[in-house]
């Protein structure tokens, strides 16, 4: 049996999808041009935002991970909806269900284990030393690990 719509518990977010009239202002007008429109398959008739809002199961739509949270779509929407809130809710649901890309789960593991978004390589340390900068340390990450345990971020997720 198919499970209930994953975003049904979020009525405001569902409202975003219902309010969208496909006017395409959010994505296709140059001053608020959505960067994801450069992906294959999107144009002024079929926009990235509409692609996200119209997916039968938004959380399993790989396109949600392309949003950079620039807020341009919500600033542009003449109906004052927030496609960003919809996309972020879909991402949260996807993470809970183990549907997030490995790259993203890797980034989260990287942050909570080192305190940095990027791996600290020998070349990083060498260059910092050349420039007279202090070496990077990872002791503070212990506090992030404790936070992740407290908030549930560290809980195991289903495999994609």
């Amino acid at each position: 049996m198919r499970s209930p719509h994953p975003l049904r518990a979020r009525p405001i977010v569902i409202g975003v999808a219902e309010a969208c009239l496909r006017c395409v202002v959010c994505c296709a007008v140059e001053t608020h041009f959505c960067h994801v429109q450069f992906e294959e398959g999107f144009d002024e008739r079929y926009t990235y935002v509409y692609h996200c809002l119209s997916a039968p199961d938004p959380a399993s739509n790989p396109g949600i991970w392309l949003c950079t949270a620039c807020h341009k779509c919500e600033e542009a929407c003449p109906y004052e909806t927030s496609p960003l809130r919809f996309i972020e809710a879909a991402k949260a649901e996807a993470y809970k269900r183990g549907l997030a890309p490995r790259l993203l789960t890797g980034i989260i593991a990287q942050i909570t284990s080192t305190g940095y978004l990027f791996p600290i390589t020998p070349s990083t340390m060498r260059r910092r030393a050349e420039l007279g900068l202090k070496p990077l340390t990872t002791e503070a990450a212990e506090e992030l690990r404790q936070i992740a345990l407290k908030t549930g971020l560290a809980e195991p997720r289903g495999e994609p």
Partner: peptide, 24 residues
């Protein structure tokens, strides 16, 4: 310098768990 500063954390990745993002 504040020795114990960590990743801000990055908003696009941590948008999957807004509460963790806020707490960090």
């Amino acid at each position: 310098d504040v020795e114990n500063f960590t990743c801000c954390p990055e908003a696009v990745s941590l948008s999957v768990d807004k509460m963790s993002w806020r707490v960090m």
